[in-house]
Design a protein around this nucleic acid. Sequence first.
DNA 1: GCGTGGCTT
Length: 993
Amino acid sequence: MAGLEQWVNDRLHDILGLSDRYVSQFMIGTARKASSAQDFVTRLEQTGTIDIDQSVIAFAEELYEKIPHKQVVEKASRAIERQAIEMERKNRTYTLLEDSDSDGDLVKEKQKGKKKSKDKDRENKRKHIRQKKESESSSEDEIPKRGDSGQSVKKEEEEEEEWEKEERERLQDIEERDAFAARVREKDKDKTRNIAERTDKKAYEEAQKRLKMAEDDQKNMLPELRKRSRWDYLKKREAEKLEDLEAEIHDEEYLFSKEDLSKREKKELEYKRTLRDLAKDYKTAGAREQEERKNRYYMPEETRSKEVPQRDLELEETPMELGGEQGRWEEERLKTASLSFGAKKEREQGMRHEQEKYQLILEEDEMINFVSTAITMKGTRSEKDQEAPALSQAELKKQSMQEVRRSLPIFPYREDLLAAIHEHQILVIEGETGSGKTTQIPQYLLEDGYTKGGMKIGCTQPRRVAAMSVAARVAEEMSVKLGNEVGYSIRFEDCTSERTVLKYMTDGMLLREFLTEPDLASYSVIIIDEAHERTLHTDILFGLIKDIARFRPDLKVLVASATLDTERFSCFFDDAPVFRIPGRRFPVDIFYTKAPEADYLEACVVSVLQIHVTQSPGDILVFLTGQEEIEACCELLQERCRRLGSKIAELLVLPIYANLPSDMQAKIFNPTPPGARKVVVATNIAETSLTIDGIIYVIDPGFCKQKSYNARTGMESLIVTPCSRASANQRAGRAGRVAAGKCFRLYTAWAFKHEMEETTVPEIQRTNLGNVVLLLKSINDLIHFDFMDPPPHETLVLALEQLYALGALNHLGELTKLGRRMAELPVDPMLSKMILASEYKCSEEVLTIAAMLSVNNSIFYRPKDKVVHADNARMNFVVPGGDHLVLLNVYTQAITAGYFYHTARLSKGGYKTVKHQQTVYVHPNSSLFEEQPRWLIYHELVFTTKEFMRQVIEIESSWLLEVAPHYYKSKELEDSSSKKMPRKQGKTKEELG
DNA sequence: GCGTGGCTT
C-alpha cells in the first residue's frame, strides 16, 4: 500500500500544490473511505478544505482505476495463500488441527504479492509460532507426559529433565516443520496456482490479471518514487516492517500466556525470553538492513561503494551526508540559520548544540535522529535573569507586591508606554507571555487617570478562566476586594459593581455589551488581549472597535498580542504604531528530525523514552491531536516502561484534554516526585489554555485537529491538519517557562519551512456565521463591516439566507423585530427562533431542549471503556419520535419553527436535504436510526465517515408550510408525500397536529 | 452502523 499512497501523495502534490503532510494524513483517509471517484470528490467537497476543479476530478478518476485493483489483488492473494496453507497442512505427516478456528489466525496475516527472501524467513518464523500455538492448544492428548505431570510423583529435577528433552524434541520437530514449510514454499507458486484453479478458476484468473496490472502499476511508479521523497517512502516501508515484527512478538507473548506455567515457570520464562530476544535480533537486523539501504540510496555515487560502518552511523552522520533535497536544505540551514538569527552568541550556542550527541542507552534502531539546525528561540530574559534561578510562586509571594511589579519586564517601559498611549489613539502592543502586560498596563492607565469621571478600562480575554484569574491577581496587587474597583465579567458570572473601573472580561462578553451600548460610552480604554489568537469574537471586536474609534476620538484602543502578526494588526488599524515589550522566557533549543516520521505516535513514544534516558531532569510535554491518540500514547508509554522496568527511572504518564474529568485533569499539576519524570500528553489545551510548571522538554509532532465549515453544504468536520508555524512556536515556547528548554519537533526543518502555514486560519473563516451575522446586523452594518480577514463569501450568504428563512431579516435584508429579539438570546439563531416561537405554549420544555442542545454533546458521555454501558443508559431515555424528544419527552411544532431550514426527506438509501438536494444520513446514535421517518429535521450536519445528521426529529411536511410559508412552496413538499408508504405512527401525529 | 481540538455569548 505504501507505493500507492506515495503515488497518491505525489499526484495530489502536483495537482493541488498541497503539502505532503496534509495529504498523507487526510486525503488518503478520504480516498480510502470513498467508494468511487465521484464519492471521493464529493467527500472532498464536503469538507470544504480544497477547491474542486477539473484537475481534481481527473485525478480522482485516475485514482479509482488504481485503488479497487489493489484491494482486489490483496484480497485474492490472501485467499490463495490461505488455501495453500490449508493444503500444505493436510499433506503433512504431522498431525495438525483441522479446526475452523485457526483460520482466524491466518486471515490476520498480511500477505503481499511479492516476497523477498528476508520476508520469507520471517514468514516461516511466524508460521513456526503459529504451529506451535496450534500444537500447544491441542497437545494435551498427544503428549501424555505433559498431561500427567501434574499428578506424577517424579521429582522436580527429573521432571525438568524430562521436560527439557521434550522441549528439545519439540524444537526439533518445529525445525523439521520449518524445513518442510520452506520446501513447500519453494513450490508455492505452482501449487498455489493448482489449488486456486481447482477451487475457483475464474476468480483466480481475474486476480492474476489484476495482480499483473498492479505490478505494472508499481513498475511505472517506481521511477517516480525514486525521483521524489524516497526518504518518505522508505520510512513508511520501514515502519510497516517493524509493525509486522511487533505483531510477531505479540504472537509470542500470546502463545506463552496460554500455557500452563505453574510447573515449569522458570524454564518457560527463559524460553520465552530467548524467543523474544530472537525476535529483537530480527528487528535489529531489519533496522540495520534499512540503514544500509538508506545509505545506498542517499550516498553520493563515489561514496556509495565504500563500506559504511553501521554501528557508529548515528554518531558520525551529519545532515550533509544525507544528501537529497532535505539534506541539502538542512545543510544550507546550518550555514545560514545563525546569520538570520543575528547575534553571535546564538550562533555559538547553536554550534554547540549541533555537536551535542545523545548517549546511546536505548537500542540504536529505536532511536530517533534529531538535528539541531542551529535554531534557538531566543530567550527574552536579560543576562542577569538567565543566571538567576527561576522563582517559584511561593518565592514570588515572599517579595512584596510592589517589588514584584517593579521586577516585571514591562516596568522600565512604563513612562514611554503611557506617553505613546497618550499620543496615539490606537496602539498595538507586542509582548510575550510573562511580560506583565495583561496585569500591569491597566494599572498604569488607572494610575495615569484614565478612569476619571467614572470611565472604565476594559480588558478582554479569550477565556473565562483567564479573565477571572487575571482580575483576581490585579485586585490582589492593588489591595482591593475583587468585584469592587477591579472586577470581571464572564457568562454566568458578573463580578463587577458600580465602583468597578477596571473590568476584565471575555471577548464575547464585550461583544454582548455592544448590544446595549453601541458606542461603548462608558469605557475610556479598551484593551484587546491575546489578539494573536484570533478568536471569532476578537476578530469581530476588531471591526467594531475600529469603527467606533472613528467617532469616539477620546477612546483609547490597545491591541495586545504575542510577537506574531503585529504588523498585520498595525496595518489593519490604519498603521497604528507598535510598542514592543520584551517577555520573560528562557531560550529554547529546537531540534528537528533528520527524516520525516511515518508514524508520529510511535515517534512520540520513542522520543519520550529517549529524552527520559538521555536528558537531564525536567518534565516532558507531548502535543497530540485528540483523546484517542492521547490514550493510545499513554498506554504505549506505560507498556514500554513496564518492559524496561528498573532500568530506567520512574516515568509518570499523565493525559490531559478538555473532556477529561476534572479530577484527572488536576493530576497534571501535582509536583513531580524526586527522581521521577513527568510526561504530560496533551491536546491543544496545553498550547494556550493551561500552563504546567516544570516543563523543560516539548515534543511536537506538528498536528492538530481543526474544525472546518463548508458553507455550501452547511456541514462541519473535524480534521487532523498540520499545525501552523505560529502554533509550533507557541508549543516550543512552553518549554522555556521555568528554565532553558528543548523542543523536539517530529518533522524536518524543511517541512517546517515549506509545508506549514505561517499562521492558523482565523476561526472566523471556518465557522458557521449565522450567529455573528445576526449580531452584526443588530449592531452595525454588515455590508460595510471591516473584517481583518473576511470570511468566505458563501458563508456570509448562507448565514443571511438562513436568517431570512427564520424571519430575522426581511426581504430587503433588514433586521426584523423578531431578529432583534433573537439577537438578544445568546444562542444559535435557530435555537433562539425555536424559543421565541414557543413562547405562548411550552417555552419551559423548549428551553430545556435548547439548553441541552447548546451544551455540546456532554449529556451522553461515552467513555471509551464503557461504550456499551453508556449506550444502554442512553437507550433508557429513548422515546419514539426523535432525538429532541430523547432530550425531553415533549412534542411541539416550536422546534419546526426554528429548524425548518434543516429539513431532510427520505429518499433512496438515505435522506436528501430539501434545499440543497444533498444526500445525508441519520446518525447511528440517533433513536430514529432504525425508524427512517419520511420527513425529519436535524440539529446539525457533521461530516465524519459519512454525512450525518445529529439530533433528528420527525415532522410532517405540512408543518413546514405552516411555519415557513415564505420559504417552502407546497410544490417542493408534495411530490412524494402523497404516494404510498403508510405512516407508522399516525396516531401521535394526529394528536399533535 | 457511529466517533468527542480548543474556546465563547
